[in-house]
Design a binder for these strands. Structure first.
Lengths: 241, 241
DNA sequence: CCTCTAACTTTGTACGGACATATTGCCTCA
DNA sequence: TGAGGCAATATGTCCGTACAAAGTTAGAGG
């Protein structure tokens, strides 16, 4: 004999089934707590525990005084990027050393414009730099960081000690990072990249393009070129709860 | 006069401050609910509400009978992989055509063992296949899929029509996918890979290793080799609520 | 010294009641 | 008719109590 499920979970099962089958239609209200107490013969505590899980599963929203409404017919199976901090995206950033090569203002051509969400022809800051395992060590990665002019007053501060840049800019500009996009792709090195990575022009590189977005738009976008056979990126997604 | 914060929130503020400052050190136990009730002069209900939020914020884990332990000193700003389905990890899988090359049982050597979480020397199924843009089209990717013997009864079913494999296996075995890990790295092609991708041995490939884990362990692990300059992978993380 | 058991501790589930606060809608009055 | 206010409703917060289940610890017994 299987041990019985908790009461609130039994109720949760019934309720989520009703939501999934449309018995409680999308955008409409659920019965009140008091109704559900009556139907299931359970206390308000137990019904609320079930409803709380429905909210956790992203199927229901509740508002004080207004009731509960169905906002999704399926539990949001959210897979969470288990690295809790965004710094983990640029995985080794914290344990490595950064050499700033140049700070410059550049006009964005059509190619770059799409990738960093800039208007073609607009001017951005570009910071070029090298990432090494340790000061003076071998180069792991060559970086172009693009920063919009509205953050100009912080660009002068960017330096080897201020890594990762996105965290610094977000904090100083008081503009939380809302979204991060990352693209990984292989491409032949141009002369600039090849020279800094000490490879022949045309050698295949692995480029990670990352764009950090705040509520006012792009905060920073960076191209990170790696020698392909040295590149290793790991990510883990876990189903939450 | 500002309206007063709820009692549980005041307690939450104190507790999270203590966690952040290390007054409750990482990996160590928090005071028991009953202690906290005493300290704050609140009921167990209220203290539990505060603790529940700490758990939601990812700072604390609780186990029945064992107490609460600190697992992070900062609230986890959780970034959600916005692609809700796991199929999106192998991005083009659904719009492409799969050709099965061979089903075979292989002994796992030390190298592979670590990567797919297998015991060295154990036997697994290996399914080799090719992914193309359309039937008979050019090869996008060469795939080795490793499947544990406990799922042997489903391996015979795997075929071009059954993609993605992980979804099929998870459903048939009634074993939900709990975690997905993905590694991307560059490596020179061996003879087998090079032949199937029509490249010279030693050419740099880009390999995506994906491991899907259920509650009983690995469900499937697959190596996906791409010609480096044809590889493009995009991901997006958004901050949730 | 090791092992199994029993007692104790701690969190989980569940009931009851009470009042607070946000929302909605009706009803009255200008 | 429109605005304001009041009443009804629904969820939020908070208290007390009780028992269940899991984990820990100390002690008895070999």
């Amino acid at each position: 004999m299987a041990i019985e499920e908790p009461r609130y979970r039994q109720i949760l099962n019934v309720l989520s089934h009703r939501v999934e089958t449309g018995q409680y239609p999308l955008e409409e209200r659920l019965p009140t707590e008091s109704d559900l107490c009556g139907e299931f013969g359970a206390s308000r505590f137990t019904v609320r525990e079930a409803l709380r899980r429905l909210v956790d599963d992203g199927m229901v929203q509740r508002r004080k005084g207004a009731g509960s409404i169905v906002v999704a017919t399926k539990p949001a199976t959210r897979y969470v990027h288990s690295l809790s901090s965004l710094a983990d995206l640029s995985q080794f950033a914290l344990n490595t050393h950064y050499d700033l090569v140049k700070r410059e203002r550049v006009r964005i051509d059509a190619d770059r414009a799409g990738a960093i969400r800039a208007k073609p022809g607009s001017t951005w800051w570009r910071v070029r730099g090298l990432r090494r395992g340790r000061p003076g060590g071998s180069v792991l990665c060559y970086v172009h960081s693009y920063i919009p002019l509205r953050l100009s007053r912080f660009v002068g501060q960017l330096d080897a000690d201020i890594v990762p840049f996105h965290a610094y800019l977000s904090r100083r500009a008081d503009e939380a990072i809302v979204e991060v996009e990352q693209e990984l792709y292989g491409e032949p090195m141009n002369k600039d990249v090849a020279a800094h990575l000490r490879q022949k022009t045309g050698t295949i590189s692995l480029c990670a393009l990352r764009r950090y977005t705040g509520r006012k738009g792009t905060i920073i976008a960076s191209y990170n070129w790696h020698v392909a056979q040295d590149f290793h990126y790991r990510m883990k997604l876990s189903r939450n709860s």
